[in-house]
Design a binder for these strands. Structure first.
Lengths: 125, 125
DNA sequence: TAGGTTAGTCTACAATTGTAGTCAATACCG
DNA sequence: CGGTATTGACTACAATTGTAGACTAACCTA
């Protein structure tokens, strides 16, 4: 596991996270709106994801149904970790500060964050 | 600007952010600890960064001094945006929740976050 | 001043990535 | 049943990325 997933592969995986299992054609259809990829391209990317162990495929009649092995949550967890490590010295606070600076925090976000923090303080003893 | 910066290129840029301007050999020396790259590799990567417009170089005697054009802050801002967009639906709160779940928030982080939020609430009317 | 040291320039080359095309088998439609 | 559409398998191919080596000019040192 943990083979690097490329940008294009990520898009496909993301489409699979939307709903799985799904046939290649379904995935391609979902991506059609965002990307302008041919069906073949999507199939190639699915195959690469399978090779990389991020996606499983099981025969269903004469086609395959694909299903993510790597969950979005697990992926996000990892990505968040390495992202924060690389750019924010492993600490979340500067990241939030940065998001705040670039005006990416809505009032709702702020309220939600406060709630999360309250939770955290309660939980940790 | 905004040409895609690869992982290896990022490492070099990151070393340049540490202190600039710097000669290629200095950058290579800094990276020596983390990566085991040859001096040539570092030079190639610097050249690519220059091509991509992320780094400037000015002659200094018979060598060049390199200096980042793209600041770490600007880079981080962008990266944070697209990162949050891709994985957290553009919203910071779920990201923080995720970091919290994976135990990546220290008590200090939490305190700091609270301070940031307080600031934010004050600032925005 | 001759030989090592250091910088820059050019070239290399396999692996990965983005983006499909072709072909063959199967299935469905009229 | 015969054509058309669908699906997977195999192949392709340029651009980017990772990782340097070779060669040359200039410097520094004994």
């Amino acid at each position: 596991m943990a083979e690097k997933i490329s940008d294009a592969e990520f898009e496909v995986l993301d489409a699979l996270w939307e709903a799985a299992p799904a046939a290649a054609s379904e995935v391609a259809a979902r991506l059609k709106r965002r990307k302008n990829w041919s069906a073949q391209t999507v199939k190639t990317l699915l195959a690469r994801l399978v090779e990389k162990g991020a996606v499983a495929h099981a025969p269903d009649g004469r086609r395959y149904l694909y299903r993510p092995i790597l969950s979005k949550d697990a992926y996000a967890r990892n990505a968040a970790k390495s992202f924060v490590d690389r750019l924010f010295d492993g600490r979340a606070a500067p990241l939030v500060a940065n998001l705040a600076d670039s005006g990416r925090l809505t009032k709702d976000d702020i309220a939600e964050l406060e709630a999360i923090l309250k939770e955290l303080k309660r939980d940790r003893r």
